[in-house]
Amino acid sequence: MEHSSKQYEQELDELRSSVLAMGGLVEAQLARALEAIETGDSELIAAVVREEKKVNVMQVEADRLAMAIIAKRQPAAIDLRQIVCSIQATNDLERIGDEIKRIATLAQQFQASERFQTLRLNEVRHIGELAMEMLKETLNAFARLDVVSAGEVIGRDSAVDDEYARIMRLLVSYMMEDPRTISSGIDVAFAAKAIERVADHAKNIAEYVIHIVQGQDPRHTTLGATTG
């Protein structure tokens, strides 16, 4: 059912759209950064760094909209949850933006080093694809307030964690075999870590979807027993 105030409905729509627009930009940024790792395209890298500022601006704007609605409407129930979770989601998206910028910067360094060519392409590509899928699906779930696909995103995070652990084991064995690979090995590790963090933030956003729809905050559910 719609609000009896059309204006209120529009304001909430505007907030939703601004979060999703921010999500769209972040998604495009991730695609560019992952491509930059493979190609080392310096223009692409420069674009990612430049656009990251736009992500920050969008967060400020979305938060401003959210605060204006709170001040004007004193929202309750699902509206209140939607607004609070939107603020949280933009925070996660902004962090994803930072991680992507880090990936792009590392892509630049990869370009300077010939070592680890195969590793960085194959391994980082795979974990990058996993994170990309999670980000896409979590944004779709947020747009449609779809609890089922939000649940799927949350379930997929452990696959990313496993993949990250596997990459780390691999890197350690390479670095032990040949200490000259340590420097570039660390770069690859940082890139993998940044991608793993992107997946964590995507998972957070999926949790907000569940909070909005069901009214229960699924974060840190193990704490439930002690905090009641």
Binding site: M1, E2, H3, S4, S5, Y8, R73, P75, A76, A77, I78, D79, L80, R81, G215, Q216
Partner: peptide
């Protein structure tokens, strides 16, 4: 009740979706 009402009718009322 104001964050997570159990009844849809309560939710519609407190969020201003009352027809």
């Amino acid at each position: 009740l104001f964050v997570k009402p159990k009844d849809k009718r309560t939710e519609d009322y407190i969020t201003g979706r009352f027809g």
